[in-house]
Each structure stands twice: as structure tokens, then as C-alpha cells.
Design a protein around this nucleic acid. Structure first.
Length: 872
DNA sequence: GCAAGGTC
């Protein structure tokens, strides 16, 4: 039997490409943890049986042993000297087992991992899994390829080398440093601040040598904006009327920061009264077509032009890739490989309904060879692979795909060429100019129209010519602060400073968003939060190194020494860890400097509000902030809901019988019970959302609103409790809880749900109070109405010992006005009359309560037919 | 509950 050769790639797609290239497509494929492609061929001059499979990225990742995992019993400082362990990154995938099985019986191992440091590190992970190193007679080879093309694969196969231990160890070093530094600082900060403040809005206050400088960029811009001092400036613009054009000329000085001097120049010009043409220059300008598209540039365009965050953009790109519409989307290269099949790719797009015509033209007129770009030796630039339409891809994926196609076609199109004419004028010793532009060749801008050069028409002038000035304008302006950092700018900064990689940049940006250090606002601009600002300013006070991008370059520089074999792995790790350990000790010692900033922004655990009730939008818990103005804050939705002032607020399940439905049927918000202070203070349920946004129009009697002005204002603390809500079926609404009309005003007497054992009714508009039979277990309203007076029938569950009912019965149902027993037990507390004389079907609930109309949250026109005490 | 780096 022929000897066996195992070949391992970094991902399944590369394994497939290698096997296809080496077998000429004649291979068999079977499934496993990852696919295995098999075929026969020649290796080092001998016939062999090949098996090509892959890992899925790193096989292992580093962590601390179990005894260091407990946050409470581990001092973060000890983490610097703790051992680290490698364990399988995705245990469920059983990659290690897979490799070990496939390696059995193989005499050669060929490593086809990506040709970068990480790939070199994975080489040794694979070697470890296969057990090749420790088995004598087994040989390990490294294939070094610069592109996944047949030519490069064959070339690599003929020049196999050995894996580079130094490069692999550099990655080991980075892993250990990142782990120890990141986890130690994160645990310390989190425990310190989360143990002290209640409203930090992040479960974990993380630190990392990539994420923290990333945040640092956003905060630096914020501070620039905040400290910006605008300055006034003035510009001078003479106008001329010439050959039917009115031209506004620009000033050679552009602008001056002195009004008087500007005026002085204006007067000089005005005295002259005309402009003299002193120069005409015309030149041809070329605007170059783009180079091939790499990941970072795709992410920038996706964010700035398409509005997709990096995370989403990569998800979409990944999908387009696996569906065969685009090439591999993670690449640093902007240069196409020499072997790139432009014709084939163009051919694939030739019948696309959107740009098919353009492609055909490129094919017939001859496309241009792309500009050179840079070759990072990883993958070719991102290009389309097959034609698609919006219907196939869906809106978002289509947008991204469309851009990739346009960019690709742009790289093969001519440069854009235009002429630029500049006319220079002189007047009163000052120089002015105007510029005209005329496009000669649209080139790539016809497929990327947003980059088009605008046509600017100006009339012809002759040198020495004098033209009268029609008017002179002095424009006043002021310097503007920069805008918040756009995501696209942030990506550029990260790339320039070596923060993260094409694959991890989206993750870092996502991290600082998820931890609530920044928020993505309109135009995908990153605005830091109080938390983000406090952190960075804190580092700036204690040890600015911690949040500067140099921290990453420092680590990179140190491990580069290992990669180049100029320094020993463990010595470098030891040295770097020792430095960070010192920084950590100092940071802990100085934490009060950062804490002072937190103290100014956040509230101590004790009074910063406690988690209270669920938000109906995100279903997470909101916090109640009892300090004035009393309010609820949903950290997820970042919404504030004011609550009734001056009282206590509890979740509604304190009265389980009544509040089986704990949420508002209109918006899912958890209901709360508000109790006014004092023995006679009324209590009522309210929905935080409805209270602030009354769902039915025409509610003109809000709780807590000042009634002086006539019109009712929704303001801090004023709102609509359930007892004003006309919802037809919710058991907490006025319709359900209302018993009868108020004898004193236009209001309705509603049942106080938590008044046991001294049950009572109160008016939802005035302070009329009616006490109900005392000592009842439970009093609740029913859906029935009294046939006599239309009041709501109530159900009373008397106490066994004190029940007034015969034979010790406890349950009694009736109308408080018409039922003899109940009527004898109710008593007017505040208010003039409580009489049942002369009752008749009344006016419902009085004036001003008609005309409720739903606003799409259910409920149509409501009319409460109940009787009033008032009319007796 | 924690980092950053692969890849899906």
C-alpha cells in the first residue's frame, strides 16, 4: 500500500482548493469534523495516497486553570504569575481527535496553514494533535503559499520548508500577555466599580490592549469637541457679471481672523472697482481608479456609505462568500495576483441586468489592468464570483454585493480624466480666483458615480482683461469643532495604529458598544458614554500608557523579537508581564483618582436605584431612581419613564390575587403600584409607559398635573395611571376598577387595590374617599353591573371571624348602593353626601370624559354607563 | 462575568 500523506489547511475552503489543485479534481470527499479529500499522487518522487483536511482556525486557546477562575477567591494580581493552560477552542468540534485519527498511518504531514504568524502557531497546534513531533520516522513539512491558486499551490508543494517555531512562539507570547493583562485589569476594575456604583450600565468593566485604545480614539475626539473654542473669521468674495454668468470669486487668502483687516482689504478692492485677469492656467488632472478591495476598505465603505456596522458587514460578506457570490472576504491585499482571471470574472457579470452593459463594453473595448496595490500574501482582493440580483440576495446583502461589483469593475476601468482651469484675478493688491472643471473621460466614475467629478462651467477669459466688480461680499464664519469620530475613521485609526486585525477590528468596535462605552449615533458616529469617558480620563490621570495605541505596538514590538529569533520566548513574556504587573500595582494604588471621576458621574449602590420592573420593549429590568424626579430608567432602551412623585413605588405582585396579569396589555410593561404617603394616601397601579404616554386621546385629567392653566401638561411626574385608563378589558383600567361616579366631581370612584384591610374607594379626580366594609380578606370588582343603578357589582370575601353573613359564610356579591348589607357598611370619608335617595340612571361619568379615541393601541370609543352618587 | 486571535 502506498504511504500516506496528511495535509492540513486553516479552513475547509482552502483544503478543498488545495485538494482540487493537486488532484486535478479527481478526488473523493468524506465528511468528518471537517471534510477530508482523498486522492493518489506523487510526493517527493514517490507515489502516495493524499488526505487533505482542515482545522477551523485556532485549535486551542489559553486560559487560567480552574483554581484561578473564581473572582472572589482570586486576587487579580496573582494572575500575572499564574500558570496558563491550553484547551480546545471548540471542544464540540473535536478537531484534535479528528486530526489524531487522520494522522494515524501517515508518514508525512504537510501544513497548509495561512502564511502569517497565527498560521504558524496553528501549525504547531496541528502537530501536537497529530502526535507527529514525538514519533520518530514521521516528517513534518510546511507549505508556504502566497495565493490559493493552482500555480502557487504547486509551487509551494515543490519547495516545502519547515514550520517556524519562533513565529509560533511569538503568538504564544502574545496570547499569554493579552490574557494576563486583560483579565487582571478587567476583574479588578469590574469588582471595584460595580461593587461601588449601581448605575454603570455594564455588567463588566473590561480592559484590553486593543479595545481600550479603540475606546481611547473615540474619547479623544469627544474631548477635542468639548474643549473646542470657535473662532470667527471673515472672507472676501467679489462678484462679476460676465458673458451671462454671475461668478463668485474666491480669495487667495481664503480667510482672515480679523474683521477690521478684512474690511480694509474690501475697501482696497472697492476703490479699484474692477478685477484684472492676471493668470489663466489649464491642466489635465487624473483621478485614479481604485486598487483591489480588501476587508478594511470594505468595512469602511459599508459603514460610511451603506450604514452597515462592521459586524453586520462581515456577516453579510461571509454569507455572500459561502453562497459563491464573492471571493474570500477576509484579506489585507489590494493587489490582484498575477494569475487573476479578469476575463472570467467579467464574463460572470456580463449578463447582470444592472451593469451587464458596462461589463460587455469593458470586454469589447478592452479592460484596463488594475493598479498594483499591495500584496499581503494572504488572499486576493474581494471580487464578485457570480452574478446575482436583489431578489436573490435580499436588500442588505445586495447593497454590499453591488458595491463589491462596482468596485471590481472600477479597478478594471480607465482613470477619470478632466481639465481644471484656474483664472486668477487681481484687484486692490489682492488676488482672487475661480475654477472651472470639464470632464474628459468619466472612466471608473461612471460605474462608481458617487466619485464623479462635477462639471463646473466658466466663461472664457483673456489675460490682462479688466472686468467690473458687481458687488463685494464679506462672509462671516466661525471655525467648527470636528464631528464625533465616524466608524469609518475609527477603522482607519485602528489600522494605522496596528490595533486589531481585519478580522478582529469589528469585534473590538462591537465590544466597546456592547459594554456601553460608546453609542453608535446617526451617520454611524461613535459617541462615548459617561462610562467610556470616565474610564479613559481615569487612565489618563493614572497611567496614560494604558489607553494609548502604543500599548499594542509595544506588545507587538516585543513579540516580534521572538518571531525573528532575536529574543527568547519566556524571557520576553516574563519581561513584559513584569512591566504590566508593575503598572497594575500602581493602577490599583491610584484607583481613587479614577474613582473621583466615577463619583461625579455615577451614584453609589445604595441610592442609585434598584432594579425594579420589566421594560415592555426589551423585557429587561429597569431601575427605579427614587431621587427627584422619581423615574425609571431602562438601561437597554436608554429610556426614562417618570413616575408619580412623592410616594412609594412597588412592583404589583404584592397583591397576587388581584394582579395576576402583571403587565399592561397595551405595551407589555410590568405594572407598578404607587402609594401616596400617609394613612389615607391612595394607592394605584400604573404602567410606566402609559403613564408617560397616555394611549388614548382625550385624557384631560392627568394625575399630578397642575390644573391651573386649563390645559393639561404631561410633564415630569404627571401622567395617566390605570385608574384613568379606558381600556375595555384590562382588569386594572378605570373600566374594570371603577365602581360608580364620584358624588363630588366628574370623576369615577375606583377601588383602591392595596387598601386591605381598610378597603376603600377613591375618586380618580378629586380626593373624595369612601370606605368599604372593613376586615375583608379581599374586595374586587366584577364584570357585572347593577341592573338598578349600573354601578359595578363588587365581590367581598369577608373574614371568617368577623363576617356579617349568616352561617359564617364569607363571600358576598352585590352593588354598594343597592345591596342593603353593603350599603350599610360603606361610609363617606371625604365629601358631602352619600345618599341613595332619588337614584336614577344618571349621566354616566359626567362631562369631559367623552371622546376617548384609541391611537392604535386598542380601545375604541368608550362610554361608561355607570351611575353616580352625585345625582341622588 | 474577563483578552485577542483564528473561523463559521
Amino acid at each position: 500500500m502506498a504511504p500516506k500523506v496528511l495535509m492540513v489547511a486553516e479552513k475547509p475552503s482552502i483544503a478543498l482548493a488545495i485538494a482540487s489543485a493537486l488532484s486535478g479534481g479527481r478526488m473523493s470527499t468524506r465528511r468528518g469534523s471537517t471534510e477530508v479529500h482523498e486522492f493518489d499522487g506523487m510526493f517527493l518522487g514517490f507515489p502516495v495516497h493524499y488526505k487533505v483536511t482542515s482545522v477551523i482556525g485556532h485549535v486551542f486557546s489559553v486560559d487560567f486553570p480552574a483554581r484561578f477562575q473564581d473572582w472572589n477567591s482570586t486576587n487579580p494580581l496573582d494572575l500575572f504569575d499564574a500558570p496558563i493552560v491550553k484547551s480546545e477552542s471548540t471542544p464540540k468540534a473535536h478537531i484534535c481527535r479528528h486530526l489524531s485519527q487522520e494522522a494515524r498511518g501517515c508518514g508525512h504531514l504537510v501544513l497548509w496553514l495561512d502564511c502569517d504568524r497565527e498560521g504558524e502557531n496553528i501549525c504547531f497546534e496541528v502537530i501536537e494533535c497529530t502526535g507527529f513531533q514525538s514519533t520518530p520516522g514521521k516528517k513534518v513539512h510546511r507549505a508556504r503559499f502566497s495565493a490559493v491558486t493552482e500555480k502557487d499551490i504547486l509551487k509551494a508543494m515543490n519547495s516545502l520548508v519547515e514550520p517556524n517555531k519562533n513565529e509560533a512562539q511569538a503568538v504564544d507570547a502574545r496570547q499569554e500577555i493579552d490574557l494576563k493583562v486583560g483579565v487582571a485589569f478587567t476583574r479588578f476594575q469590574t469588582s471595584y466599580f460595580n461593587g461601588k456604583y449601581g448605575n454603570l450600565d455594564s455588567r463588566v468593566i473590561s480592559y484590553g490592549p486593543c479595545q481600550t485604545p479603540t475606546l481611547g480614539f473615540c474619547v479623544r475626539r469627544h474631548l477635542q469637541i468639548n474643549t473646542f473654542k470657535p473662532e470667527k473669521f471673515w472672507t472676501l468674495h467679489p462678484y462679476i457679471m460676465y458673458k451671462g454668468y454671475e461668478l463668485k470669486l474666491d480669495w487667495q487668502r481664503h480667510r482672515l481672523f480679523d474683521s477690521d483687516v478684512t474690511q480694509m482689504f474690501r475697501n482696497f478692492v472697492k476703490e479699484d472697482g474692477f478685477l484684472k485677469v492676471i493668470g489663466i492656467s489649464e491642466k489635465q488632472v487624473s483621478k485614479g481608479r481604485p486598487t483591489g478591495l480588501n476587508t478594511v476598505n470594505l468595512l469602511k465603505v459599508a459603514s460610511s456609505a451603506l450604514g452597515f456596522g462592521p459586524q453586520l458587514a462581515m456577516q453579510l460578506a461571509e454569507r455572500l462568500y459561502t453562497q459563491g457570490f464573492i471571493s474570500y472576504p477576509r484579506t489585507e491585499s489590494t493587489a490582484y495576483p498575477a494569475s487573476f482571471d479578469y476575463k472570467g470574472t467579467l464574463g460572470a457579470l456580463a449578463r447582470n441586468p444592472v451593469w451587464g452593459d458596462y461589463v460587455q463594453q469593458l470586454l469589447s473595448d478592452g479592460y484596463h489592468k488594475p493598479r498594483s496595490g499591495t500584496d499581503a500574501g494572504d488572499h486576493p482582493p474581494i471580487t464578485p464570483m457570480s452574478s446575482a440580483t436583489e431578489n436573490i440576495l435580499g436588500h442588505d446583502a445586495w447593497k454590499l454585493y453591488q458595491y463589491i461589483c462596482q468596485h471590481f469593475l472600477g479597478t478594471l476601468s480607465p482613470d477619470c480624466k478632466y481639465t481644471r482651469i484656474k483664472i486668477e484675478f487681481e484687484s486692490g493688491g489682492e488676488s482672487f480666483y475661480c475654477v472651472g472643471q470639464h470632464v474628459l473621460v468619466k472612466g471608473f466614475t461612471s460605474i462608481m458615480p458617487w466619485l464623479a467629478v462635477t462639471e463646473i462651467n466658466i466663461p472664457q477669459f483673456t489675460e490682462g482683461q479688466k472686468i467690473d466688480i458687481s458687488r463685494i461680499e464679506v462672509d462671516e464664519g466661525s471655525t467648527q469643532p470636528p464631528d464625533y469620530l465616524s466608524e469609518s475613521e475609527l477603522i482607519s485609526l485602528m489600522e494605522e495604529n496596528g490595533i486589531g486585525t481585519d478580522a478582529s477590528i469589528p469585534v473590538h468596535i462591537n465590544n466597546i458598544c456592547e459594554r456601553n462605552y460608546v453609542q453608535v449615533q446617526a451617520g454611524r458616529r461613535l459617541v462615548p458614554t459617561a462610562l467610556g469617558i470616565s474610564l479613559i480620563r481615569g487612565y489618563q490621570l493614572i497611567d496614560p500608557d494604558l489607553c494609548l495605541p502604543d500599548i499594542r505596538s509595544f506588545i507587538e514590538h516585543q513579540i516580534a523579537l521572538v518571531a525573528k529569533g532575536q529574543a527568547d520566548h519566556s524571557l520576553v513574556v516574563e519581561h513584559v508581564i513584569e512591566q504590566f504587573k508593575r503598572k497594575f500595582i500602581y493602577f490599583v494604588k491610584q484607583i481613587e483618582n479614577m474613582d473621583a471621576l466615577f463619583e461625579a458621574e455615577f451614584s453609589p449602590l445604595s441610592d442609585s436605584g434598584r432594579v425594579l420592573s420589566k421594560c415592555g420593549k426589551c423585557l429587561r429590568y429597569m431601575k427605579h431612581i427614587p431621587t427627584q424626579p422619581s423615574r425609571l430608567y431602562c438601561g437597554t432602551c436608554e429610556e426614562i419613564y417618570y413616575t408619580p412623585p412623592k410616594g412609594t413605588i412597588k412592583v404589583s405582585h404584592i397583591s397576587p390575587e388581584l394582579y395576576k396579569e402583571l403587565t399592561c396589555p397595551l405595551d407589555n410593561f410590568e405594572l407598578l403600584i404607587f402609594s401616596m404617603p400617609g394613612p389615607e394616601g391612595k394607592s394605584f397601579p400604573f404602567c410606566p409607559y402609559c403613564y408617560n404616554n397616555p394611549p388614548f386621546e382625550g385624557i384631560d385629567n392627568l394625575f399630578g398635573a397642575s390644573k391651573s392653566s386649563g390645559s393639561v401638561k404631561l410633564g415630569k411626574g404627571a401622567g395617566m395611571p390605570c385608574f384613568l385608563c379606558p381600556h375595555p378589558t384590562c382588569q386594572h383600567s378605570m373600566i374594570s376598577q371603577g365602581v360608580c361616579a364620584c358624588p363630588e366631581c366628574d370623576g369615577t370612584l375606583v377601588l383602591d387595590p392595596v387598601s386591605a384591610p381598610r378597603w376603600r374607594l377613591y375618586c380618580n379626580m378629586c380626593n373624595c374617599l369612601v370606605s368599604l366594609p372593613e376586615g375583608a380578606h379581599r374586595i374586587s370588582t366584577t364584570r357585572d353591573h347593577c341592573p338598578e343603578c349600573d354601578s359595578t357589582i363588587i365581590e367581598v370575601d369577608f373574614n371568617k371571624k368577623t363576617t356579617p353573613l349568616k352561617d359564617g359564610a364569607t363571600l358576598h356579591i352585590g352593588c354598594i348602593l343597592c345591596d342593603e348589607l353593603l350599603y350599610s357598611l360603606v361610609e363617606m370619608k371625604h365629601g358631602k353626601s352619600f345618599s341613595r335617595k332619588a337614584r336614577h340612571r344618571g349621566r354616566g361619568r359626567g362631562r369631559g370624559r367623552r371622546g376617548y379615541s384609541g391611537r392604535g393601541r386598542g380601545g375604541k370609543k368608550q362610554h361608561d354607563p355607570r351611575m353616580s352618587f352625585r345625582d341622588f
